[in-house]
Amino acid sequence: MNLIETKAVSIGYAQKTIVDQLSIQIPKGKITTLIGPNGSGKSTIIRALAHLLTPTTGAILLDQQNIQTIKAKALAKKLAVLPQTNATASDLTVDELVSFGRLPYRRPLAGLTATDHQKIEWALTQAKLQDLRHRALSTLSGGQRQRAWIAMAIAQDTETIILDEPTTYLDLTHQLDVMVLIKQLNQQAHRTIIMALHDLNHAARFSDQLIAIKAGQVQIQGDVNTVMTAANLRHIFQIDAELVDYHGTPLILTYNHCAPTVGDSV
């Protein structure tokens, strides 16, 4: 069953079309990852799915309902978003940041309810942040900070979490922390995950479905083994990749530039 579906969605600014006639399906309860080169429109699609951008044509359906017609607060109870940059918060403590996730549920002027506290506690536990809860964000490492932002999205208690390149700027260990946390949310808490990733090996290892984007259009979508083939990577990224099968998942050992083949737009 599809949770989110786009129907002939085009997105652009003024005269420039960035995403053209996009039709993708995001299955419920799965991890779906958008891959594609810089400037391919991944982030634009992510922002449109998160209702941060309005498509010029077409419709985005969430549970069969046009996302435009859902009230902002109601949507925030179904869909949590982790944007690419979250730079501004610094003096906030982890606790304070995670409580923001409860905003869609709060009445004006009311404090946190018992349910709110419970959800915040749960989010902190999931992200392994209990010991850091009173620390200011500015005193945390990049990886810890990213986990705090994810905890805020978890506290929002939504069926779906959308993440735009959640591992950017993190070292290997912290990238793994974040990816494992995302997987765990999907497996144990049954969250539907939609994200954009640059690391193809992470995308292959942690996703159920891949959608390859190039020049604002879907090149191929399907399960990991269908999408991650040498031929597809050559077409999408202009690379010759050495792929091996590692416990049933394709893994890129190394890669090189390749000359663009005839018919490819560069």
């Binding site: 998160a50 869909l79 944007p83 501004t88 003096d91 923001f100 869609p104 929002q156």
Partner: peptide, 20 residues
């Protein structure tokens, strides 16, 4: 005043929390 705490977040983050 409580709403002013949203100033600590980016505009995208505030919007995705359902706030205008």
């Amino acid at each position: 005043a409580p709403q002013l705490n949203l100033g600590y977040l980016t505009d995208d983050a505030v919007q995705s929390l359902g706030k205008s």
